[in-house]
Design a binder for these strands. Structure first.
Lengths: 138, 138
DNA sequence: CTTTGTGCAAATTCTTTGCACCAAA
DNA sequence: TTTGGTGCAAAGAATTTGCACAAAG
């Protein structure tokens, strides 16, 4: 199957002009729902796109953010991580290995935005942390 | 009142050897519950402690973290922020000015740790974001 | 004395910026 | 041919590290 065409259309939905690089990055995000860092995206795409620069990956993700096509996760102290899934879900980060996992199926109350006289609240991010099984065994 | 004595005892509770610098930093955290960054702490203490170095503030906060006397907030993309309040509460960050506020009085269900076969979850951080009134008016 | 803490400077890491070249319409 | 995209190199910001000196017991 040719996923490039699908990804191309996907970008247009967010009013993002497709380019070879942008399509490759979005394609990666759609297929690898692992909340990758800039470096992970760059390292994954670099072998098949040797001229790709990390600056372009930064530029691209910043554009996707502006256009609302991805969400930035603030969960990892070291690097920014990106998520294309904008539905109501939470995240879990393993403090040992640093991997970030999705948590679905939580009670809807958890995602409710409280009323507050001092602020206009428009989103919530829920970050659980602890240890994943893989790290516990080793 | 001499708060140094109180702060001194407070540090000992967490098995932290008090020093002039450590006591000053903890004293600042106890009195300024504004989730300060390293730089804010350094800038606040520097005038009355001219020899204080930013490295010492980093060292001190890392020690406090290890000993469990403070919590690191992962909410601000730019800087680490520290909180001495370890009770169940959430945070709000204004996307315009970057200030972080406490949110108390949420339903207890929000802080429940879900069971998950793949991870051992031991804490949760809830970060609301939006715009604060001060920024909306300007 | 001996151990531990402090603070300077340098190193490291992540991200942004300036600018020249390239590509697409 | 003009506009916008890409990518190199340099700059910037936050944090850590190595090491010598100072402090405390």
């Amino acid at each position: 199957m040719n996923s490039t065409l699908h990804t191309h259309r996907y970008l247009l939905q967010y009013a993002i002009k497709p380019s070879v690089q942008r399509t490759a990055v979005m394609d990666y995000l759609l297929k690898n729902r692992t909340h990758p860092t800039i470096d992970e995206i760059y390292t994954a795409l670099s072998p098949s796109m040797p001229t790709l620069s990390k600056t372009t990956v930064y530029n691209t993700l910043n554009l996707f953010l502006e256009k609302g096509a991805v969400q930035a996760l603030v969960i990892d102290e070291k690097n920014a991580r990106y998520d294309i899934d904008t539905s109501a879900h939470a995240h879990f980060i393993c403090k040992k290995c640093g991997k970030v996992y999705d948590i679905f199926g939580l009670k809807p109350e958890v995602f409710e935005l409280p009323q507050n006289p001092n602020f206009t609240i428009d989103s919530v991010e829920i970050a659980y942390s602890g240890t994943c099984n893989a790290c516990k065994e080793s």
